[in-house]
């Protein structure tokens, strides 16, 4: 229960931030960190706890983002009604990809590549259909009001915080539930888990559906925060990479890893962007080098390093 209390304390701390910080820069940086942590947790649930590495988490992200935009722009839905629909669709896409891949027993790099291919298929489709705006993309009209899920910085901070807390609770539940034990058993050895009576297919399905729903939340947030989505932003590789980087850098298979990873990467990004001078490229060169060094010195992620010190 101590770890559950930790989630509560964390929520409380972040909830107090707007009362004390009035720097828009800092608030935006915190919002983007929580957002990256959400994507990272969505990856971690499948990749960390379930051992199913995905290179195509953008497929869920984009589904959520497009559902949010299409329902509001084309069908005039309210954003608050569109959000659960976006989550359901994200989960459904997860279920569809999961059913196909797990039915045929895809694991390891084969699973990774199939998710990547699905993301590309969705990108091409979004680029083709008229109702997604094709290549022009979709723009959510600017109407700032809590009723439209369009806030100032503080409101958006609370929105992304509640998404992240939901994700943290899911991760906590996985860590402490029988389902989680099954999922980790499947990760460690599918055959012996199956021999012990674990319904491997169902366990994996549940994990990918939850990952899809959480990732769709991330997509929905993106659309509300930036008001524009196009096929490349939605289904391009950079979102998938952002999700897996936060999880792996922080430490996979842990409840706090994605948040720690997201914070570290955000900090690294801000520092390199601001301190490396104006020569284009230098900032990202340093970013890449530090990334490699981090892996070199912290092979089990930042959280892994911390637990090693504790022992």
């Amino acid at each position: 229960m101590r770890s559950l209390a930790a989630i509560g304390v964390f929520a409380l701390l972040i909830a107090l931030v707007p009362a004390m910080v009035d720097s828009g820069y800092l608030l935006n940086a915190i919002i983007m960190t929580l957002y990256a942590a959400l994507l990272g947790q969505a990856w971690n649930i499948l990749g960390g706890f379930g051992g199913l590495f995905s290179f195509g988490h953008a497929v869920f992200f984009g589904t959520g983002a497009y559902a949010m935009a299409v329902l509001q722009v084309n069908f005039g839905w309210n954003a608050w009604v569109a959000l659960p629909a976006a989550m359901v669709l994200g989960g459904a896409v997860g279920g569809f990809i999961g059913a196909l891949s797990f039915r045929y027993g895809l694991r390891g790099s084969y699973f990774a590549l199939v998710t990547l291919a699905f993301a590309e298929v969705f990108r091409v489709l979004a680029n083709t259909f008229q109702f997604t705006g094709a290549g022009v993309g979709l723009m959510v009209p600017l109407k700032e009001s809590a009723l439209n899920m369009q806030f100032g910085k503080t409101g958006f901070l609370y929105l992304i915080l509640s998404f992240l807390i939901a994700a943290q609770l899911v991760a906590w539940w996985i860590r402490h539930s029988r389902f989680g034990a099954w999922l980790q058993a499947v990760r460690d050895n599918e055959e012996s888990a199956s021999a012990l009576g674990v319904d491997v297919f169902r366990v994996k399905m549940l994990a990918i559906v939850m990952a899809g729903m959480l990732m769709a939340c991330g997509g929905a947030f993106y659309v509300q925060y930036l008001h524009y989505i196009d096929p490349h932003l939605a289904f391009g590789a950079s979102v998938s990479v952002q999700a897996l980087m936060a999880a792996i850098v922080g430490g996979i298979g842990s409840v706090w890893g994605p948040l720690v990873g997201a914070a570290a990467l955000q900090l690294l990004g801000e520092l390199t962007r601001n301190l490396m001078g104006d020569a284009p490229g230098i900032n990202l060169i340093v970013y890449g080098v530090v990334l490699v060094l981090m892996v070199n010195f912290m092979p089990r992620g930042i959280v892994g390093l911390a637990t090693r010190w504790k022992r």
Binding site: I248, Y287, G288, L291, V292, V295
Partner: peptide, 14 residues
């Protein structure tokens, strides 16, 4: 595996 992923990714960024 997960580290190889990050390392090759880091190399491509660099």
């Amino acid at each position: 595996d997960e580290n190889i992923l990050l390392v090759t990714l880091g190399i491509s960024i660099v």
